[in-house]
């Protein structure tokens, strides 16, 4: 019995990461940034508006919210579509009523499937983040690079044409990536990616991803993680976001450096009647805090860049 000797050699065991997409960076060492008006906490609200095709392939994996039952899976298909018909309007109304800026991550096919919804997102003041073609088109290693590049370009172009502005941010469907996705997103001219959930502040990517900034959308505090993966109740979600808000404000004041609280919101989860009031209470709490700046990802990125 023995393992192959290559299994006990370590090609990347040296200072730095085990890849060239970014370099190490530690929270206490990051250049301190204060948000406009000297505010300490930027709140980045991100409605995630996803289109799940009824006939999506189960490979290479079924994304959260995808079709898990034999075709035709009306169960999951309609639960997700509910979000784009009903839930999203509850979220938008809550944001507009409080005058809150946000960034909507949208499947590009929304421009064809529900053009009215895309217009409603724009008139609610949402920045549009490109969230792939649809939830059935995952950027996993099974794609060849030319096909993947073509998908990214077509997503960018379709959203640019439909909204009058090329999207600056990218979020891969289900955060599934190939080894080339981040490079291709950089080469397609995006300013930022939300795919790397390893930080709470933006950081510049390097090497083949040079030019791209990683924005801290995160995952562990997302509605998806807490209420789908962990099956937490809406009031438990609410309590945890409150705890995060209180902690981040205290930390930001203590070290006199700005922090970011990102809130991804899936309308098929948060937009349901039993959960929406938890979100509304959170938004009230955020609105009442004078040290908070509610902003789009693009505006947060600009403010961060100005402080570098």
């Amino acid at each position: 019995m023995a393992v192959d000797p290559s299994y006990m050699t370590y090609a990347h065991r040296r200072p730095g990461m085990d890849h060239d997409l970014y370099e190490p960076g530690y929270l206490p060492d990051r250049a301190p940034v204060l948000w406009p008006g000297g505010r300490r906490l930027a709140v980045w609200i991100v409605p995630v508006v996803e289109v799940f095709p009824l006939n999506m392939a189960p490979q290479p994996l079924v994304p959260p919210g995808g079709m898990t039952r034999p075709y035709p899976d009306y169960w999951n298909y309609t639960l997700q579509d509910y979000g784009n018909r009903v839930g999203i309007y509850r979220i938008l109304d809550a944001l507009v009523a409080r005058g809150m800026q946000s960034s909507a991550a949208v499947s590009a096919v929304l421009a064809d499937r529900y053009p009215d919804l895309l217009r409603d997102l724009l008139s609610a003041g949402c920045e549009i983040i490109a969230h792939g073609r649809d939830m059935g088109t995952l950027h996993a290693p099974h794609l060849n690079i030319a096909d993947e590049a073509a998908i990214i370009a077509s997503v960018r172009d379709r959203l640019a044409q439909a909204t009058g502005q090329a999207p600056r941010g990218w979020l891969s469907p289900a955060m599934v990536l190939s080894h080339e996705t981040t490079r291709l997103v950089a080469e397609a001219g995006f300013a930022y990616t939300c795919d790397w959930v390893n930080d709470e502040l933006p950081y510049r990517m390097t090497g083949p991803a040079k030019g791209l900034t990683a924005m801290p959308l995160g995952y562990e505090l997302s509605d998806l993680r807490l209420m789908l993966d962990y099956r937490h109740m809406a009031w438990e979600y609410e309590r945890q976001v409150q705890d995060a808000l209180v902690f981040l404000l205290a930390e930001a004041r203590r070290v006199n450096a700005g922090r970011i609280l990102a809130l991804p919101l899936h309308p098929w989860l948060v937009g349901t009647p039993q959960r929406i009031s938890a979100l509304e209470r959170l938004l009230d709490m955020i609105a009442a805090e004078p040290d908070v700046w509610v902003a789009s990802g693009d505006d947060i990125l600009s403010a961060w860049e100005a402080g570098q």
Partner: peptide, 16 residues
């Protein structure tokens, strides 16, 4: 399927 960027990111958060 690798690269599992989501879970890599979650773990790298621990060090950053």
């Amino acid at each position: 399927p690798e690269p599992d960027v989501l879970h890599y990111g979650i773990r790298d958060y621990g060090n950053r």
